[in-house]
Structure formats: structure tokens, C-alpha cells
Design a protein around this nucleic acid. Structure first.
Length: 893
RNA sequence: GGGAGAUUAGCUCAGCUGGUUCAGAGCAUCUGCCUUACAAGCAGAGGGUCACUGGUUCGAACCCAGUAUCUCCCA
């Protein structure tokens, strides 16, 4: 035999992936004779390279898709990437900077040329990497969120929602990223706990001379302070120049005398009013609140309520502008440090306290977010959210695991309008066109915009050059929320065959982090534009962490390179390794041992094949493996049913574990050991036929998890016709044969006897092959005769006999109420043997007593269901049988 | 501060409507084996006060209340 002893995945993976593609197995098209099954990939960033999170996510998708394909469905997995506007633009800007080019020196068109060439060069990397993993996507359907068709879809939706009044332009407080110089949505803000400083500043009360301040003693001081100045606590002293009022709670006794007074902003000296509002918390800080509408959302609302002006002192890059009057041109953080010093020198800083605070940072750039008032485009969420919540509440869409339903509900009930404009160039430019008079029109293209503008202005001479298109682009999620529809061209051609057949898709596999800003919005878009949910099931994966529970990241350097892993352990090994420990919704603590286990499993399968393949057949031999075949057949059916059940409930780890144990424990350790002929002896044709068929079924069951090795072995196992691949083989159906339960329990009993003998071998230090004899004291002699060959083979017995009493000098064990003895001349330690039996007896008696107690309890007998009672009686009978057996054994000693 | 979830073997997790031989799996551990399919392996073994405290029940890992710890979400 010249088959290698270990499996080398590198030799076969590329080959099979290419063959599958040549055969067109991954291609899907509407087929009325088949049920559709479709999945859209969560489009990775076009800038991205494969990381462990992608590996997990795409492995799960591939398992689902491959199984569906084998189940005879028209399986369609649509791949693609998204343009990731802020991340990509940041990357291109950085790259240009390296080349000595500043973005500011380029026109929009020039910059986009650079960006597109960058995309052409690097944009496909991640998709190529997915092929290494075995992803069975229909590559002909690869889409990109910024390609012309998808861009058109985005613009159509924008125009449509604008017309429906769902999109509006307005001044709102947005999350401003001063580094990316763009607004970002609430979902892109990450809150970080930090220690911050609280500065206590003195605002002089107008008309009360500071000279009255006395510092004689502390108690007086406090009283005097409030008469001469009011102390305000703030974490952001650099914003005082934007203050427009000081607010106190009207019920606050400390400040009642100050109502209607005015105070002076420290350093700046500008006078601002004191206002009263119940909103102010009396026991936070000093009970006085500086009101800075331009730089705080709550202050902004307070400002509107009290009709206060807005003074915005910040530039887009986080430096102070001339409205600040002081520190103009300096960065906000530099100003904070400086102003603290200046205030202290001026005697206007009471104290600085440390306190635990939350810092809002940008997900993309890490910069501290600046709440900033700006003119942005918004998409209304309230109506869409109601519908999107309903379909999850009523299980039209199921979240796996369901615990995410709670989270989803909370978010949908508290959703705010979606800021969809971004101050970037890389993305779909907002199709709003401004007229010279400042009004605007929204239209799909320039011609239409001009037509509308002429109509709106009444000026028929208006030219295209008079119109100015909005400079901003749309949030990337405004493209990806259309993904399940747009990839099937459902906007361009809403009644096309693809979208009618493949939409709604079936399963979506993604991370909980984007449940809201992607999943929820896809549901909204689906309901809005197809009147149908975009998918039926949402499988939420966890985060891949290292063995210390830290999130894997480039910065920490704790993430292995997925492609290195594949090269080292094989794609099949990596796939199974990731799935071994990934219950839905739970984080996966990645350990290289899991991948090793996966690799070992492929090797185990390889060797099982090697054994079967190596057998010579002797056509004259009778069918020797009948009992084994009967048993494994039953076991296989039971496992298939279990496997399907796990799949239906999206329990991927459990599904894998079911096949893993079926292959390793039942097929290799038990079945093959039963039917395996002696060394170099031939096998009978009937047993071989069944064994090969079993192995073939196992390859099918394993294929979704381990596509490469199963395809390789499938072709090694037999001559195959042109299109006969395991990749498209039919998924085995569970068929419960009559009496299979009985078959399984009988074999379990036989195997328990084998285990008993093996334990004795281990305990007595006997080799695995030293022939032993077995004496049985049992009523079930049929078990011994039916399974005679199997018992002899697996337990290496030279003789099995039935006895009435324990033979002299033997070691015994109890199995299923019967007693078994292995005569061991000269190797018996009577004392130890007696102690062991007594211990076992005591245990059995304790158990019997507890059952007796239960059965003696009238209430139990009255209340318990019949089958429960029956089980308890059976337990009692078994226990008593065991006790008698043990007592006999002890007497025999 | 508000809300949700979790706590079961050394680790990662199952345990479905309370009753399936006094709680299961994989990995790890320990013991013995280089037995010609596989040492990336084989055979066997040990290991748990189901976080804690009460309650409901004939019966609780499971239901209820409280406590502790952790995680996530929101502010």
C-alpha cells in the first residue's frame, strides 16, 4: 500500500476548489424544480484582509450553504465587498501622504481616481482568501457596494425616501470625528471608561464686587462665594468661550437669590444670564451648569427651550476658531491644559477633581468625538423601526440565539433618526443640487435635477453650471442596508427572475455588534421595498478572542494569520477547529489546540480510509460482519436524525460534535475494529460493500464541515462519473428502521462487557492481546451467542462460557445485572478484590435504598406520571439484580 | 445610574415542558500500551455541595425571592 500515513491537505485543496469551480457547482440560477436557498455574505470592507472573525463567520455560512446544496436546494451564496467609506478614505489618504501627496491638494475627481486604482489593486484580496477557506460562493455574482448598479440603487432609494418625506436635511447635534473630519452615526461611537478631571470654575456675579470675598474661614467662605461668584463644575473648561448661560435648578435654595442675575464668563468677561430649569441636577457638581449649546446635546436642547444663542467655537479639525476669541487656532486639548493654568493664575479655578467618566471615541479613527452642530442629512427611523421590530417579535425573523431579541427590542424602541451624510469623497455623492438662491432639489441625475430646478425656480434659463451638487457622500450603511435586494438587482428591475426566486434570503450570519446598524436596517429596507423580510434566520456569531479572553487585534498581535493556519493545518482542520468551540452568540476563545484537534480529525478520517482501501477481497468468504453492519446502520440513522436536529436549531458546534463522535468513536473505534480482518487476511465482499457504503455516507455528512478531504476521499474510494462529486451528492436522510432501538441497546450491552474485560486488563497490567477467557453468570445467554464473535475479537477472548458460580481465582465485574468472571490464575489479590466488591455493593445498596424511599412515598406514587413510576420500578429491579450478583461474588471469594 | 444575560468538571460548553439507573460532552489530566489504518494514535481511569442563602414541590441544576461575581447593551 502506498497511501501516505498522514494526510497532507496542501496537496489537494487547490485542486478540488478549482474542480468545483470548473464544474460550476457554486453557480445558482432560478430553478422552478428546486427550492431556493440563498445567503448574502456580510460584505467585508474592501480594504480588509481576512481575520479570524471572517474565518468563523464564513465557515458557518459555508457549512449552511453546502448542506443546503446537498439537500437538493438551489443554493446561492452571494459574495462581495463594501466600500467602507471612512476606513477606505483614511487608508487612501495615508497612502497618498506617504507618496508626498496631500488630500487637500487634490480635486474630488483626482482623489477618486487614486481611490479607485487602490481599490482595483487591493480590493479583491479578501475574496481570494475566502476561496482558500473553501467558501462555496457563486463568484459570478460578486458585487461591490459602489459599483454603478448598486450606486444607482442607493440613489434611487435616497430620492424615493426624500419624496416620501423620510429623508430630510437639518441642523442637528452630530458625532463629529475631528480626525476623519466627518460626522459619524451613533453606532460608530464607542464609549470608553476613563478618569477625567472636573474643573471648578468661578463665574463672577455681575454687580457684586469681588473685593468682598473674604477668606477668613471656611464656613463663612462658602456663604460669601455664592454672593460674589458662582462655582460651576465642568469637565471641558475650553468650552467656556461658547457659554451662553448658567443654569440652576429653580428649587435649589443655594441659588435662589441669583435668579435673573447675570454672570461673567471667566477670562473672557462676557456677560451671560442665569436661567432656571428643573433639568439641572442639584447634587451633581455644584448644582450650577454652564450652558454651551454648540458643544453638548443636552445644552443644545436646553438652549432651544430657553431661546439662547448658539456659539460654535470649534473648527472641523478640533481647533478653536475666531469666535472663541481666546486661544484661536489651538487644538481643543491643548487649550484645555492651557486654560486650566490661566484660570488658576487668575484665581478663578477653585479646584480640580478626578472622576470616572465616559469618553466617546470614533470607531474608525479612535479620535475623541466632538458633539457638533451641523447641517446634515437624516433618515427618519420611527415608522420603519416599528415594522422592523414587529417581524422579530413575531418570529417571522428568528435571531439565534434568541437572547438577542431583548437587545434588539430595546434599540428599536429607542431608535433615533439616522445621520446619513458623511463629509467624505469616497462613497455615493448625495443627489441634492443647490440652486443659486440656496434652495435645493433632489434628483437621480443632473438632467432631472435641472428640470426640477427650472420648475422650482420658475427660471427656464437655469443651466447645469448654476447648480451645485451637495459635497457630502452617504454613509456606507446606506448602501449595505439594501444589500439583500440590490445584489439581485431588485431596485433596477424589481420583478426580475433572480430577486423573485432568491429573495427573501434564508439565513444571515453576522456579528451581534452590527445587529442594529446593519441587520435592523436591512429589515427596514426589505419591508419598505419588497414588503418582505430580507431573511428568515439571523445567526449571530461571537467575537474571536485569544485564550486569555482578549479580543484578537492587530495592535495586540495576538491573532494568528488565518492563511498561515490554513497552510499549516489545512482548511478543513481550521474550519472544524473554529467550530468545535463556537456556540451561537458566545465568544470563541481561540486556542491553537482546537485547530490541532481539527487537523487530527482529518487525519483520523484519512486513516480510516487507508484501512478500508487496503483490504483485499476474497469472494468466497461468507458475510462475517452482519452484526456490526446491523448495529452501525442503526447508529448511523440515529446520528443523522440528531445531526439534522442540531442543524435545524442552528447548533453548529453540536452538529459537528455529533459527526465527530460518530466517525471517531462509533465508526473507527468500534465498527472498524469489529469488521477488520486479521493482518493481511482478506475481507468478505458483503462486509466490504457495507463498509464502503458507510464510509461514503460519512463523507457526505462531513462534507459541509470538511469539504476538501471529503472530496478527495470520495474520489479515492471509487471510480466516479463526470459530475459525481460529494460536493453535490445528496444529503443522507434519516430512516428509522424497525427494531433499531433494540439493536442499539443490545450492542451497548455487548460493548459494556468488552469494556469490563478491558478494564481488568488495564488494572492487572495485562497486554491488550493476551488471550483471556470469560465466564458469565447470566440469564441472557443469547447476548453471548449473538455477539460471540464481536466479544472475542474486541476483548481478545479465547473462550466464553456460561457458569453457575464464580470460578476459582477469578476477577469479576457486573454488567447489566449479570456477573462476569475472568479467571486469572495466580494474579488475584483476594483482599483487594473483596474490598472492591464491597465498595460496589455498598454503592448499589445505597442506590436501591434511595429508590425504595421514593417508591415508599405515597405522594410520589400518587403524583408522578406512569412512565416515571415505571422507570423507578425498573431502577429498583436492576439495582436488586446487581446487589444479588455482587453478594454471590463476595461469597465466591 | 437603567436594562438584559450569565454563573454546571482544570478549560470551553450541553443539559429541551422539574422525574431517562444517585449530572453529560469535547479538550486537558492520570495510568498502561510504538497491538502494522492512525503516537496527529490505542485501551482504561479519575475529576462536579450545578455561585451562595432561603422558598415552592412528593421530588429542583431546572421554578420563585434575595445576595455575590462576571459579561453585554443603553445613559
Amino acid at each position: 500500500m502506498s497511501i501516505a500515513k498522514t494526510y497532507t491537505p496542501a496537496d489537494v485543496e487547490a485542486k478540488w476548489y478549482q474542480r468545483w469551480q470548473e464544474q460550476g457547482f457554486f453557480k445558482a440560477k432560478p430553478n422552478p424544480r428546486k427550492p431556493a436557498y440563498s445567503v448574502v455574505i456580510p460584505p467585508p470592507n474592501v480594504t480588509g484582509v481576512l481575520h479570524m472573525g471572517h474565518m468563523l463567520n464564513n465557515t458557518i455560512q459555508d457549512v449552511l450553504v453546502r448542506r443546503a446544496r446537498m439537500q437538493g436546494k438551489e443554493a446561492c451564496w452571494v459574495p462581495g465587498t463594501d466600500h467602507a467609506s471612512i476606513a477606505t478614505e483614511a487608508k487612501v489618504v495615508a497612502l497618498l501622504k506617504e507618496q508626498g501627496i496631500e488630500k487637500s491638494s487634490l480635486t474630488r475627481e483626482e482623489f477618486l481616481t487614486h481611490a479607485w486604482s487602490w481599490k482595483e489593486k487591493y480590493g479583491g484580496i479578501i475574496l481570494e482568501q475566502l476561496k482558500k477557506l473553501g467558501a462555496s460562493c457563486d463568484w459570478d455574482r460578486t458585487r461591490f457596494t459602489m459599483e454603478p448598479e448598486l450606486t444607482e440603487a442607493v440613489l434611487r432609494v435616497f430620492v424615493d425616501l426624500y419624496r416620501k418625506g423620510q429623508i430630510y436635511r437639518g441642523v442637528r447635534m452630530v458625532n463629529w470625528d475631528p480626525q476623519g473630519r466627518t460626522a459619524i452615526s451613533d453606532e460608530e461611537v464607542i464609549a470608553k471608561d476613563t478618569m477625567a478631571k472636573m474643573y471648578y470654575l468661578r463665574y463672577e456675579v455681575v454687580g457684586s464686587p469681588l473685593s468682598v470675598v473674604s477668606k477668613q474661614n471656611d464656613t463663612d467662605n462658602e456663604q460669601l462665594q455664592t454672593t460674589n461668584y458662582i462655582t460651576i463644575a465642568t469637565s471641558r473648561p475650553e468650552t467656556i468661550m461658547a457659554d451662553v448661560a448658567v443654569a440652576v435648578n429653580p428649587n435649589d435654595e443655594r441659588y435662589k437669590h441669583l435668579h435673573d442675575a447675570k454672570v461673567r464668563i471667566p477670562l473672557l468677561g462676557r456677560e451671560i444670564p442665569i436661567i432656571t430649569d428643573e433639568y439641572v441636577t442639584m447634587d451633581f457638581g455644584t448644582g450650577g451648569l454652564k450652558v454651551t449649546p454648540a458643544h453638548d446635546l443636552n445644552d443644545y436642547e436646553l438652549g432651544i427651550k430657553h431661546n439662547l444663542p448658539v456659539i460654535d467655537i470649534l473648527n472641523d479639525d478640533g481647533t478653536l476658531n475666531e469666535k472663541a476669541q481666546l486661544y484661536v487656532g489651538q487644538d481643543r486639548f491643548a487649550v484645555r491644559r492651557q486654560i486650566a493654568k490661566d484660570l488658576e493664575q487668575a484665581g478663578l479655578l477653585d479646584k480640580i477633581e478626578e472622576y470616572a467618566s465616559v469618553l466617546q471615541t470614533s470607531e474608525r479613527t479612535g479620535a475623541v468625538i466632538e458633539p457638533k452642530l451641523s447641517l446634515q442629512w437624516f433618515c427618519k427611523m420611527d415608522q420603519m423601526a416599528v415594522k422592523a421590530l414587529e417581524v422579530v417579535e413575531n418570529d417571522e425573523i428568528r435571531l439565534h440565539p434568541p437572547k438577542f431579541k431583548n437587545m434588539y427590542r430595546v434599540w428599536m424602541e429607542n431608535v433615533r433618526d439616522w445621520c446619513i451624510s458623511r463629509q467624505l469623497w469616497w462613497g455615493q455623492r448625495i443627489p441634492a443640487y443647490y440652486l443659486p438662491d440656496g434652495s435645493f432639489v433632489v434628483a437621480l441625475n443632473e438632467e432631472e435635477a435641472l428640470r426640477q430646478a427650472r420648475e422650482q425656480s420658475g427660471n427656464a434659463d437655469l443651466q447645469l453650471t448654476d447648480l451645485r451638487q451637495d459635497e457630502d457622500v452617504l454613509d456606507t450603511w446606506f448602501s449595505s442596508w439594501l444589500w439583500p435586494i440590490s445584489v439581485f438587482d431588485g431596485f433596477k428591475d424589481p420583478d426580475n427572475a433572480d430577486v423573485n426566486y432568491f429573495y427573501p434570503t434564508d439565513d444571515l450570519v453576522t456579528a451581534p455588534e452590527i445587529l442594529f446598524f446593519w441587520v435592523a436596517r436591512m429589515i427596514m429596507a426589505g419591508l419598505e421595498y419588497r414588503k418582505q423580510v430580507p431573511f428568515r434566520n439571523v445567526y449571530l456569531t461571537g467575537i474571536v478572542r485569544d485564550d486569555q479572553g482578549r479580543k484578537m487585534s492587530k495592535q495586540l498581535g495576538n491573532s494568528p494569520d488565518p492563511l498561515d493556519l490554513i497552510a499549516q493545518y489545512g482548511a478543513d482542520g481550521v474550519r472544524t477547529g473554529m467550530l468545535f468551540s463556537s456556540p451561537a452568540g458566545n465568544d470563541l476563545l481561540f486556542d491553537i489546540k482546537l485547530v490541532e484537534q481539527g487537523r487530527n480529525f482529518t487525519n483520523k478520517l484519512w486513516n480510516a480510509f487507508r484501512l478500508v482501501k487496503g483490504w483485499e477481497v476474497d469472494a468466497s468468504l461468507p458475510f462475517a460482519g452482519a452484526k456490526a453492519v446491523e448495529w452501525f446502520g442503526a447508529k448511523l440513522q440515529a446520528s443523522i436524525a440528531e445531526l439534522d436536529d442540531h442543524f435545524d436549531k442552528f447548533r453548529m458546534s453540536d452538529a459537528l460534535m455529533t459527526v465527530y463522535k460518530l466517525v471517531w468513536d462509533d465508526f473507527c473505534s468500534v465498527y472498524l475494529e469489529m469488521v477488520k480482518p486479521a493482518y493481511q487476511a482478506p475481507i468478505d465482499p458483503e462486509t466490504l460493500k457495507h463498509t464502503t457504503a458507510f464510509l461514503e455516507t460519512l463523507l457526505k455528512l462531513l462534507h459541509p464541515f470538511m469539504p476538501f478531504i471529503t472530496e478527495e476521499l470520495w474520489h479515492e474510494l471509487a471510480e466516479r462519473k463526470a459530475k459525481e462529486y460529494v460536493c453535490v451528492a445528496s444529503w443522507p436522510k434519516a430512516q428509522a428502521a424497525a427494531g433499531s432501538a433494540e439493536v442499539l441497546t443490545r450492542m451497548e450491552k455487548a460493548l459494556d462487557i468488552v469494556a469490563g474485560v478491558r478494564t481488568i486488563r488495564n488494572q492487572k497490567g495485562l497486554g491488550p492481546n493476551k488471550p483471556l477467557t470469560l465466564a458469565a453468570k447470566t440469564d441472557d445467554t443469547a447476548l453471548l451467542t449473538d455477539y460471540d464473535a464481536i466479544l472475542r475479537k474486541l476483548a481478545a477472548l479465547s473462550d466464553i462460557s456460561v457458569v453457575d458460580a464464580a470460578p476459582a481465582a477469578s476477577v469479576g465485574f457486573v454488567s447489566g445485572g449479570a456477573e462476569f468472571f475472568v479467571p486469572l490464575e495466580g494474579q488475584i489479590d483476594l483482599g483487594a478484590e473483596k474490598a472492591r466488591l464491597e465498595k460496589e455493593l455498598e454503592y448499589a445498596q445505597g442506590f436501591r435504598d434511595s429508590v425504595l424511599k421514593k417508591l415508599a412515598n405515597e405522594k410520589f406514587v400518587q403524583n408522578a406520571k406512569a412512565d416515571v413510576l415505571e422507570r423507578e420500578r425498573q431502577k429498583l429491579a436492576d439495582a436488586e439484580g446487581k446487589i444479588t450478583a455482587l453478594e454471590q461474588s463476595l461469597k465466591g471469594l
